[in-house]
Design a protein around this nucleic acid. Structure first.
Length: 510
RNA sequence: GGUCCGUUCGUCUAGCUGGCCCAGGACGCUAGGUUUUCAUCCUAGAAAUCAGGGGUUCGAAUCCCCUACGGACUACCA
């Protein structure tokens, strides 16, 4: 019988979510939606020391921007709440105690300092210390102390943790949807802390308890969790929950584009692309890290880019909307090896999305920038301009560089073009062309074009040379859409004005 | 050090049930064409001895073993 699909994205609010985390959220979301399942946002804030104010809001806001929606979670509620682990605090102690009474866990009174000392002495002998079956009997815990002594220490408020008593001799099997069958021998694993001396559970305990209580069916998370998956399997077994244990899928890591290693939050802007979905300002240092949204990426593009970092549909289709991804996605087609982010490919994706937008939509996005420059223009007219130049840009913010000449005369003239095209008699001819334009009536694209071309032909002039120089004085460079479309857009008077201004200024340069 | 995971063009990858692969696509790059400019678009090209070695087989990128390299984890962090 198929189990009802319930997946969770469970970040800890220790800062902004980086794109690796976003991808994990995305894959969970795609899987849930495809299966008609439930997507849950659970906040894992059991580490009081690393809590960062604003991080939870950031996570919610940035995922909302990207269109990753939750059915249950801290911000939307749900029947399995609360969804913030700090709000579930009493629960975990209860379950830790259950494990103790079943003999699967024990109290450990070793101080962090004493453990650190032992670690150092091991290191001195080039050995690695591990709190496990081989060492637990020589340490201070409820297995080595008498029952009375242990109870007394607890009664005296002596700090203690609760550790899992990893069995000595078992093969633990993790069946992973991406990695296959991973077997680890329990004797190699350590007695992980389940419950900290500050009264909070560790990730391992809280995670298993919550996944069980929230009836999570599939755990889709980063590969960094693979090494602790055997512990998690053991915990399910210890609790007697093995028959409802979720299925696992450990995602390949997102790597640094330079060198190797896991992409980290700290990589920041060093790499020439954002590592965060939206801009983040560190509440302590005030330092700002750029985001995809602020860098001009469309949410749809970011989703598309991220979906393809570690997954592909097996066809040649590359452009996928969220709905298409939901249909096409499959865990089986997730690759095993880590992927590096490619800025160029990301730009290309965004460019494709720019083109998918209509001129009207682009005009709406471009308008604020123009307003900021003190330019007011009719939205319908701007839409036409956007349609004219949209194939030349990858980002909305590049629109200005490709269309400024529709709004103002050029301030500078491309010297390369002057050098290559500007001749002795060019100024003369351009002035003639100004007169021709002046006398063109009605002033439309086609007649203006025809009249100028006729002039060039009648005087046996070099078409390319004159046309490029005309473009130079109108636009300022050898860029842009059809010249007479531009001339028509700016109007007769402005065109004539720009020709005269250009001729004058270039005269000074040559 | 230990445990686990991984390794196909610069990058993302196809290939996973062996022959259609002297390895295909995409980005990027180069050249040509179109555009009287730029961008787009079109065409072509360079680019992986499939990490290396050894098996199995008539035949291996695909199966097995070893080695190398990379990575993750190894906290009272997640």
């Amino acid at each position: 019988m198929e189990r009802k699909v319930r997946v969770r994205f469970a970040p800890s609010p220790t800062g902004p979510l980086h794109i690796g985390g976003v991808r994990t959220a995305l894959y969970n979301y795609l899987f849930a939606k495809q299966k008609g399942g439930t997507m849950i946002l659970r906040i894992e804030d059991t580490d009081q020391g690393r809590f960062v104010p604003g991080a939870e809001e950031y996570i919610i806001d940035s995922l909302t921007w990207l269109g990753i929606k939750f059915d249950e979670g801290v911000h939307v509620g749900g029947p399995y709440g609360p969804y913030r682990q700090s709000d579930r605090k009493p629960l975990y102690r209860e379950y830790a105690d259950k494990l103790i009474s079943k003999g699967w866990a024990y109290y450990a009174f070793d101080t962090p300092d004493s453990l650190e000392e032992i670690r150092k002495s091991y290191e001195a002998e080039k050995k690695a210390f591990q709190y496990d079956v081989t060492t637990r009997n020589s340490l201070r815990n409820s297995l080595t102390l008498s029952h009375e002594e242990a109870q007394q220490l607890i009664a005296d408020n002596h700090p203690y943790v609760i550790r899992f008593k990893m069995p000595e001799n078992q093969d633990i099997v993790v069946n992973d949807h991406i990695r296959g069958r991973v077997v680890v021998h329990s004797g190699l694993l350590d007695d992980k802390v389940l419950f900290k001396s500050d009264g909070m559970p560790t990730y391992h305990l809280a995670n298993i308890v919550d996944d069980h209580l929230m009836e999570i069916s599939h755990v889709i998370r980063g590969e960094e969790w693979l090494p602790s998956a055997p512990l998690h399997v053991m915990l399910y077994r210890a609790f007697g929950w093995e028959d409802t244990m979720p299925e696992f899928a450990h995602l390949p890591l997102l790597l640094k584009p330079d060198g190797n290693g896991k992409l980290s939050k700290r990589d920041g802007d060093r790499l020439g692309f954002p590592v965060f979905p939206t801009q983040w300002q560190d509440p302590k240092t005030g330092e700002i890290s750029s985001g995809y949204r602020e860098s001009g990426y469309f949410a749809e593009a970011v989703i598309n880019i991220l979906a393809f970092l570690g997954w592909n549909p097996g066809t040649t289709q590359e452009m996928f909307s969220m709905d298409e991804l939901i249909h096409a996605f499959s865990i089986e087609r997730i690759s095993k090896s880590g992927a590096k982010f490619d800025v160029e490919k990301a730009k290309w994706f965004n460019q494709q999305y720019v083109r998918q937008h209509s001129g009207v939509e682009l005009a709406k996005l471009f308008m604020p920038e123009l307003k900021g420059k003190g330019i007011s223009i009719d939205e319908a007219k701007l839409a036409i301009i956007c349609d004219l130049v949209k194939e030349r840009v990858s980002f909305i913010k590049e629109l200005w560089d490709q269309s400024y000449f529709f709004f103002k005369a050029p301030d500078t003239y491309d010297e390369q073009v002057i050098k290559k095209r500007w001749k002795e008699d060019t100024a003369l001819h351009l002035q003639q062309i100004a007169l021709i334009l002046e006398n063109t009536s009605p002033f439309e694209t086609q007649p203006a074009h025809d009249n100028v071309v006729t002039y060039i032909q009648e005087n046996a002039l070099n078409m390319g040379q004159i046309m490029n120089c005309l473009r130079l004085v109108i636009v300022g460079a050898a860029i842009g859409p059809d010249l007479f479309t531009i001339i028509n857009s700016i109007g007769k008077a402005e065109a004539v004005k720009r020709i005269n201004k250009g001729v004058d200024e270039i005269k000074l340069l040559t």
